[in-house]
Design a protein around this nucleic acid. Structure first.
Lengths: 208, 208
DNA sequence: GAGATAGTGAACGGCGCGTCTCGTATACCA
DNA sequence: TGGTATACGAGACGCGCCGTTCACTATCTC
């Protein structure tokens, strides 16, 4: 009925699509899930609402993921792959840290942040599995890499102590941001980030 | 029917109680809620199960709290008042910090920790109110006091930098523990606590 | 074009929520 | 001590959402 060119790269999906299948449909479900997440939050997210928003049947959801938690996990993962931006240190230690921390905080304000809050709420130590671990690693690893790069740059310039590369230290800045986000309900604003830098991160890592 | 002395201080509650009322019943509900929390976790906690365990009617629960979140909040608060132990620094900075941190980690392994995980999952910035804020303060304040005391002691001895008393710094150790607990699903063990001390807390606060 | 595959929409039983009612135990007061 | 008001226990109720199933239909493959 509608213009369905047999092109692999999907451009048709938008307006006049008939019935979507496979990855095409999957993406639509992810987008719907993330939109719902942003609107109502994880606790109030209904599978029926996601299906309706994606104009899909519930069966199509349950065919792919066993429950809400897995769907959101998958959606988060899908969105996460879009984000891993490369970052080049400018040499301005404080400025670089501030920039990356603001970026993380901003990120937490998106549906993605809401997803993290959600699966933390449902998480019990005895229910964790490889997939959950994988998602956690997928979030942590690129962050570690960015901070490590900044610290390495600083060490080379003599402004940062070599101990800054110890794993717990590299993770410190994201840890502060995530803890704030989880316990306060909203990401840290610029003033709070400044306090983290002044009182904790910079005093700890700068060479005396 | 059973021995119901008209004594205010309740000793009768246990074995042969007939029908409990007021605070007496409330305590029983709290204990039931915390027990359920420990067994099935927040996500799987059912009001019906709490009522059944407390041998109470559901109506008795809903008469007191509007929903699950409030019940668990109240239960956590009830238990929190039992805990605020006073702590006297021994002068052994590292030993004192380790001791308090282990205590907090242990605490997170109880139903109380599960309660925290629960209300974090349901938390959205736009839904927060005075009661939630109050509970958060109720948890944070005694911790801050204990760490502040330890740091003040160290400052007096010259082993700790005065900057350790800045608010974000005083909160740092509990922040690390809570973040670990929330993101990993289980409290930090002794080895992790040792890393926090070695890599972060002590380097930051000790006088050079 | 025909068969295979995958999606839609609706209906279903089940469960837990939050409310309500009824009968009964406990507290308060004459 | 007896009578009344209040609070509670047990369970039924309608509702909303879960996760499954079914009949039907669109899309892909050959």
């Amino acid at each position: 009925m509608n213009a369905s060119f047999t092109i692999e790269g999907n451009l048709v999906t938008e307006s006049t699509a008939g019935r979507r299948r496979g990855d095409d449909l999957e993406r639509a479900i992810f987008e719907a899930a993330l939109a719902e997440l942003a609107e109502v939050g994880y606790a109030n997210l209904r599978m029926e609402a996601v299906a309706a928003r994606a104009k899909a049947g519930k069966a199509s959801l349950y065919k792919r993921w066993p429950d809400r938690a897995r769907l959101i996990q998958a959606a988060a993962r899908y969105k996460a792959t879009e984000v891993d931006t490369e970052f080049e240190p400018s040499g301005d230690l404080r400025g670089d840290l501030r920039k990356v921390m603001r970026y993380i905080a901003e990120y937490q304000g998106t549906p993605f942040g809401e997803a993290i809050r959600g699966w933390i709420g449902e998480l019990r130590a005895d229910e964790r599995d490889a997939e959950v671990e994988d998602l956690r690693a997928r979030i942590e690893t690129p962050r570690i890499r960015v901070f490590a790069k900044i610290y390495e740059d600083g060490i080379a310039r003599g402004t940062v102590r070599p101990e800054a590369l110890r794993p717990r230290v590299v993770n410190l800045a994201p840890t502060l941001l995530t803890h704030y986000f989880l316990t306060r309900g909203a990401p840290a604003d610029d003033a709070v980030i400044e306090e983290f830098l002044d009182q904790i991160v910079l005093p700890l890592i700068t060479a005396s």
